[in-house]
Simulated assay, not measured.
Amino acid sequence: METVFIKGLGLIGSSLARAIRQDHPQIQIIASDVNEETLQYAKKNNIADRVVTDMTGVDQADYIILASPVSQIIKDIAALANLKLKSGVIITDVGSTKQTIMQAAKVLTQRNLTFIGGHPMAGSHKSGVQAGRADLIENAYYFLLPASESADTSKLTWLLAGTNAKWLKLTPSQHDKIVAQISHVPHIIAAELVNQTQQAFKDEPVGMRVAAGGFKSVTRIAASDPTMWSAILLNNKELILKQLTSYITGLENIGALIEKEDRSALFDFFKRAKVSRESLNTPARAPFYDLFLNIPDKSGEIARVTGMLAKHQLSIINIQILEVREDINGILQLVFNTEEARDQAARILEKDYEIVTR
């Protein structure tokens, strides 16, 4: 019987445990976390077979998954380098920065241990073991970074096959540049916008109460785990600082255009953004095909939509609500993996809902 040792049972660690349990019920899962309540929840809900607060049992593991904040992952790598581990063990992590982790992992490869850096590009504004889901990473990119040319990723992808992730190999520098721009900086911007808005409305509490769909959509990720994000920023600081400087320069340029009342330049600014943003919804993102429809703000409306599609055995790979305001229609985005499924869904739903072209 094979054994998996998971260090860290937050959102990602517990989601991987659930996916492994679902796809490989024969595998024993040992989970480690510093939070006793987290461990008891994991044991009670059959997320793990054994729970520990340290590295006890790691020597029995065929796979070791490090799923703590990045700073702790680096410490755990150093600890593993001094432990007797099982022959052939595969060690991986889920940290969202990679250059510092891959540098730290050299102490493992020097011992001829297999280390494969990993980062699932999925998450939630919720955190903790209770927020984990077996399908959290479904159809999301999962970056893999083997620490050596001889490292075979096939066993790891077999272990995590239940996530239904899309595997993509990158170099550490490629990875950190990409995530700094599309993940790390947006989290900073969202958090600062919330903090700034809270300060601006400190004497006008009604301001935060009336914040509608646009503000909530832009700032949703500001509700993410502060411990995790503090660690992430400090472990990718050079690229983040570089991109923040560029972003601030961009804002200053926009401020100058507003000051000059340069309507043409402002139009071009928004036009470029509109074209780029709309390109994310084109079939170039295949196999993703989006359908947008107006839905009223009524209890059970989303369940009605998904029920109608389920009757025709149509599978939705992602769903989200856009531009939500209380008591009026919102935009429901449904994502399908084939153009045929999207078009069939449109024919089914157009009788009861307005299909929106975006």
Rank of each mutant, 00 (worst) to 15 (best):
A134Y: 02
I73P: 08
G95I: 08
H119C: 08
A265T: 11
V185T: 09
S124G: 08
P25R: 08
N235P: 03
M102D: 06
D297P: 04
K351W: 02
Y142G: 02
E2C: 06
K86V: 08
I91P: 03
M228Q: 08
G123H: 00
K166V: 08
L239G: 06
P287N: 04
M55S: 08
I47P: 01
S230F: 05
N45P: 04
I188F: 07
N112A: 09
N294Q: 12
T100C: 09
E192V: 15
D33E: 11
A31K: 02
S127P: 05
F292G: 04
L280Q: 05
L16E: 01
I91V: 09
N294D: 15
H119I: 09
E2M: 12
A61E: 03
S87K: 15
M308K: 14
T306E: 08
W229K: 06
I295E: 04
Q181P: 00
L234H: 14
D54K: 11
I101F: 02
E37A: 14
L280P: 02
D352V: 02
N112W: 02
S276R: 13
Q28E: 12
L11W: 06
A67D: 01
I221F: 06
Y247F: 15
K75Q: 14
E261S: 15
T227Q: 10
S173P: 00
K237D: 09
R111H: 12
L257E: 11
I328G: 01
G214V: 07
I321N: 08
G128W: 00
S315W: 04
P25Q: 06
M1Y: 02
D76G: 09
D268I: 08
T219K: 11
K177E: 15
N337C: 00
L233E: 07
V4C: 07
Q99W: 00
D135P: 00
I47R: 02
T97Y: 04
D54H: 11
A104P: 00
V129A: 10
G307Y: 03
L80P: 05
L291P: 00
M102N: 14
R18H: 02
A211K: 05
S150Q: 13
K7R: 15
V275L: 14
L66G: 07
A67W: 00
N318R: 05
I258S: 03
V335I: 15
L244M: 15
R277Y: 12
L291C: 01
A284S: 12
A231P: 08
S87Y: 03
A67R: 01
I74H: 07
F270L: 15
T109P: 04
A341N: 05
T282W: 04
Q313V: 03
A200R: 11
S71W: 03
M308C: 06
A303G: 13
I258A: 05
I295P: 06
L80S: 11
I90Q: 07
K98S: 12
A284D: 09
F215T: 12
R263L: 13
A273T: 14
T153Y: 04
A147G: 10
F143N: 04
W167I: 10
